[in-house]
Amino acid sequence: MRHATRNRRRERFWESFFRKICLAAVALPLLILAGLLLNVLLDAAQRIDWSFISSYPSRKPALAGILPALVGSFYLVSLTAAIALPLGIGAAIYLQEYRGRSRIASLIEVNIANLAGVPSVIYGLLGLGLFVRTVGMGRSLIAGACTLALLVMPIVIMTAREALRTVPNTLREAAFALGATRWQAIRRVVMPQALPSILTGAILAISRAIGETAPLIVVGALTFVTFLPDGIDAPFTALPIQIFNWVSRPQKAFLYNAAAGIVVLLATMLVLNAIAVYFRHRLQRRWS
């Protein structure tokens, strides 16, 4: 035993060393994240104020604001949610509640897994070829929203399905035993139970839609818009598009605008997530 102690001591040194390496692997990305946020905040401080939010874009960085992009993003995401949530949750209900293991269902399942891995820029090409050209929506708000809806649909379906899966089967059986039809059981018993988790998934999907840039560029969002969209067929811009436009300018001052835009974008996402957490908490507390 004594003999082995020196070996063991060396081993223990490497063990604690390796543990520190692993800890560093966790800490480093988080520190970088913190650094990134801090840096953006500092840069944004140069520009962000009320006039930044309430102004239209301008060729002068100090005057340029983000209003049309903010409004555009709001419309775009609302439309996207209105399209993607019912369809996606419907698909999840179909997969989880109606066709447990049928061939169609497993085909759809494999398909959704594959769709989730398709690069977002390719959804842009789909939107351009299908909605903008073939359907004839033009480079409009609704074309952008349809594109984003298809893009986030796999997220909605997968999270909603997971939420439905956690509802115990005994509750469905209880509903059936009372004489509920399948849909009644889903609507009155399964859905209320799964709602908090479905909501979380929905927010996740919407957050993704707010930040998406590439598909909107391909579909044809404008980069310099001095008006607010007046209908679903209007040309539009969105927060990330405006940020991209400012990042691409050589002048340093526009970079501050970009940073300020990023802060607005992240703040919007943060608020959205906070709302989701709040609702989730309230719904869950009501029942226990």
Binding site: G90, A91, I93, Y94, N111, I112, L126, G129, L130, W183
Partner: peptide, 29 residues
């Protein structure tokens, strides 16, 4: 009514297959 609901839910499910077909055909065309 029940069957109508099931029918539309099936439609929602098939939409994802249509999306894949849409991507493929747009790219090919």
């Amino acid at each position: 009514g029940e069957r109508l609901i099931e029918f539309s839910l099936t439609g929602c499910g098939l939409l994802s297959v249509l999306t894949t077909l849409g991507i493929l055909s747009v790219l090919v065309i």
